[in-house]
Amino acid sequence: MLADDDGADVQSGGFSPDLHHPKAWLHQLIDFILDQLPAWRDRPGRRAADSETQLTSQLCAHLNGVARKSSGWDVLQFRIEEPDETKLARRIDLIAAPAGEVIWIEGRRHDDFDPLLPIECKRLPTPKGKDRDKREYLRVANGSTGGVQRFKAGLHGAAHEQAVMIAYVQAGGIAAWIQRLDCWIRTLSRAGISGWSCDDRLNTVSHDALRRVAVLSSEHERELTLPRIGLRHLWIEM
């Protein structure tokens, strides 16, 4: 549920007066998504799925249904495979955007066509394949399909300073993956891989073993003279 914001005029239906939110509102939105992850995973009738595309499509449908019926969040819509705002040839896995409203955040205007929050989704472990890299959540050795890598390079979310990565943990458990990714980042740093250092490490914010979800955070320097970007990592054991 959306916490009350001073000066925020939240209305539903039609085109209401513009909504003004502080930057912290994005963290409330991220908390809303986090809260819905286990509800979506455990939802009766949800069809079994393994692929990233299927899982993200299901999650998008769930978030839209819940947002539409939730006071304060009914001003939002979620969409999949959206073109990036600055790199139109590239697709964002999932976005949150206004739904028939104009939402201002820190002086920036957003309407139906402007993503509020870009979201990249990955499976852990990375599916095996000829051209797949086990460290794909972070980076790939040959290519630009790494999750964190895309944000660091400005290939995703260049117009944003806050983004989200969702991990569908399908084997190994959250605790093991926290250690594994930390080891990988340290290895990238020691190997002198361009653009990577221990400053890119993920910090655990919370880990709910009962609901099998976790939140991690990271901040990254970006290329193209872009400002640093903050990532919230929402992990759910499937």
Rank of each mutant, 00 (worst) to 15 (best):
H62K: 10
L210C: 08
E85V: 03
R46E: 00
V66Y: 01
R186D: 15
V140N: 09
H110S: 06
N142T: 14
E106I: 07
T56K: 03
Y168G: 07
H110A: 10
T204Q: 02
G100A: 14
R150C: 10
R211C: 05
T56W: 09
D199I: 08
G129I: 12
P44A: 13
I236M: 11
A159G: 06
C198F: 00
G195C: 06
A167C: 15
I103E: 06
R135Y: 13
P38L: 01
L59P: 06
W40T: 04
D182H: 09
D9T: 15
I103K: 04
L29D: 08
D84H: 06
S197K: 07
H160I: 01
S194M: 11
G173L: 05
V164Q: 01
F151Y: 13
E237A: 10
T187Q: 15
V164H: 06
D50L: 08
R91N: 09
Q77A: 05
P98F: 00
L202W: 12
A24E: 12
I119A: 03
I92W: 03
A96I: 01
G143I: 01
T126M: 13
P118A: 06
L226C: 11
G45F: 03
V66F: 01
L234T: 05
F113E: 07
K130T: 11
R132W: 11
A175R: 00
L34P: 02
L116D: 00
R68A: 15
L55P: 03
A158Y: 03
H220E: 04
P125T: 14
S51A: 14
I193K: 11
K23L: 02
L138E: 03
I119K: 04
V169I: 07
N64R: 15
V140I: 13
P98R: 05
V213W: 01
G154I: 01
L117V: 10
R212A: 15
A61F: 13
L231I: 14
A171T: 06
A49E: 11
G146R: 02
S71I: 04
S51P: 00
V169L: 04
S57K: 07
R109P: 01
S16K: 03
V148Q: 09
E82T: 12
P115L: 02
I166S: 01
T53R: 14
R47P: 04
A39L: 11
T126F: 03
K87V: 08
R123E: 09
L124I: 14
G107S: 10
L202C: 02
R222V: 00
H21A: 08
